[in-house]
């Protein structure tokens, strides 16, 4: 039996700004992971990744990242590294939080941020 597939989001960095972006169902790149497409089928995930890789003049380093469905239905990253990418650094209010975006996933030491 094959292992159960962990749902994924397609994530990358924006070519110009370098910040974290995620692929949406309608083929846009969003800076808010809550709006990203949560992919629950492995074959679809591979197709979506290929689609992302076909846009080298828009994003850098697209990859599949583990996520689960949050209470609001949007994706929540499972690993803290990916949670950081929705959050920005913890030493200054710069990056995603400074842009008014809500971090998702567990930032260690700040469990209240979890949206799972």
């Amino acid at each position: 039996m094959s292992r159960r597939f962990t749902p994924k989001v397609v994530s990358a960095n924006h070519l110009i700004e370098g910040d974290a972006v995620w692929l949406t169902e309608d083929d846009r790149w969003t800076r808010d992971i809550a709006q990203a497409e949560l992919i629950e089928d492995e074959a679809v995930a591979q197709l979506r990744l290929l689609f992302a890789k076909s846009q080298p003049a828009v994003v850098v380093g697209p990859d599949l990242v583990d996520a689960v469905k949050g209470a609001d239905g949007g994706p929540v990253p499972t690993h803290f590294r990916e949670a950081f990418r929705t959050h920005g650094p913890t030493n200054y209010l710069h990056g995603k939080r400074a842009e008014g975006l809500t971090p998702r996933g567990k930032i260690p030491g700040n469990e209240t941020l979890s949206n799972v």
């Binding site: 370098g18 974290a20 650094p89």
Partner: peptide, 10 residues
């Protein structure tokens, strides 16, 4: 030329 791509930005 010293330019990296990091978690949140270049």
């Amino acid at each position: 030329n010293g330019l990296y791509l990091q978690l949140h930005a270049y």
